[in-house]
Design a protein around this nucleic acid. Structure first.
Lengths: 185, 185
DNA sequence: ACCTGAACACCGTTCAAGT
DNA sequence: ACCTGAACACCGTTCAAGT
């Protein structure tokens, strides 16, 4: 089943999920999964689809933008293998994955637009601003998961801090006025 | 040699670089590499170390911050497998990799500090600001390489655009004054 | 010192059968 | 419809030898 594959993924990364071990832990033979999934990649895609659906559900709850990004980072650090699977390159062109990703992205844009309307983000194309925020959260989470963040030790800035820094810069009243074409106060 | 392994890496990703094929293309047996590298991972680490050294050299040339980030993204998109290798999780604790990464990071901080001094970035801890900019460039490049950027089609913002957006926000005169504690003009 | 061939344990995948 | 066992081609790695 997908459950045991997810467990193997969390425990030992993507290279630990082998069809033989999946079958063994599920109590079937090593090639029984082929009757349910055409491929090993199809099984991994099923994990990614389920995870992405949960992610879309979290976005649909319309949390605050900062909360959403923090939750995203916490999830990436707790389940780095799932994170890499969901937001890495998809080798299987699953329509299920595509629509789930599109839905999550659309709802994120809505949240960004609402935050703009509340005056906490500069004006401008919400799609583009959502991409900027998402790219930062993704990069900070990926670098942190790989251990490449703040190796200096002095800055000791975690990925959540970087998200807060960005949102802080973007929410300053001056930059909002500047971006809107109005003169700064 | 490392050259043929790099070629295999670029052509078919990390899963295409097999010691048997490396040996064959190098004209030796499939386990001759074990006399030069303890592991397959050690061979991959050698590729990463060479690539990271080139990266550090590019930073040492002290290009403009925007130029450096654009070059970084262009490199990530042209050689995505190298990018994943260098900035992914290191399974081999190579001291060579560690010092090269530390050097590159330190020099990036210097460039950021110079850009701050020139008045094109807000004041504050340059280490932290460098992390922010690097995280965004990394996330934008990684999402773009995976095909997860601007799937909407409307925003059509490439990773370079996101870097420009961030630097643009950060270089606005208002936010600089705001961050420095001075009143906006 | 450097290389080779055989061998081992492990994969994903396929296929001929079984119920 | 779903599962099994054997088999194939491919790995990384080890080892006893060779020069």
């Amino acid at each position: 089943l997908v459950d045991v594959a997810t467990r193997l993924l969390d425990e030992g990364g993507v290279e630990a999920v082998t069809l033989r071990e999946v079958g063994h832990l599920a109590g079937v033979s090593h090639n029984a999964p082929y009757k349910h999934f055409t491929n090993k990649e199809a099984l991994l895609a099923a994990i990614a689809a389920r995870e992405l659906a949960a992610h879309a559900e979290a976005v649909a709850a319309r949390p605050a933008l900062r909360t959403l990004m923090h939750d995203y980072i916490a999830w990436a650090l707790q389940y780095p293998a799932r994170f890499k699977l969901v937001f890495g390159k998809w080798t299987t062109e699953s329509a299920e994955l595509g629509v789930a990703a599109h839905k999550a992205q659309t709802m994120l844009v809505d949240i960004v637009a609402e935050t703009q309307a509340a005056g906490d983000l500069p004006e401008g194309d919400p799609v583009r601003l959502a991409s900027l925020i998402r790219a930062l959260a993704h990069g900070a989470a990926d670098l942190a998961a790989a251990g490449h963040l703040a190796a200096d030790g002095k800055g000791h800035a975690g990925p959540e801090d970087l998200v807060d820094d960005l949102l802080g810069y973007l929410s300053s009243r001056d930059i909002r006025r500047s971006a809107s074409g109005l003169p700064p106060v």
